[in-house]
Amino acid sequence: MATIKIPTPLRKFTGEKDSVEVTAATVGEALQALEAAHPGLLAKIVDDEGKIRRFINVYAGDEDVRFLDGLQTPVGARDEISIIPAIAGGAHG
């Protein structure tokens, strides 16, 4: 069972639970399992084309999956997947 950490703004989908246990081989499968358990959540994380949204980060352990194999990133039974709203910005509009 991999553990998915849910950020505060999305906990309304999980009945305020801060983490959800899923059985999956990849990050993408884990998110599909999350959607099956808590419908509506997946659309907040990926866009219509199935890409992770610009202002959402999905971490496998301590690494953003964008730098791994994206949604194909394999997950082990003890892995932690974290969904975290991005912290970013910059000067000049």
Partner: peptide, 12 residues
């Protein structure tokens, strides 16, 4: 130069 992003795992 004109943007920042940090590793959000630091919060956890």
């Amino acid at each position: 130069r004109t943007a920042y992003k940090l590793n959000e795992r630091l919060i956890a």
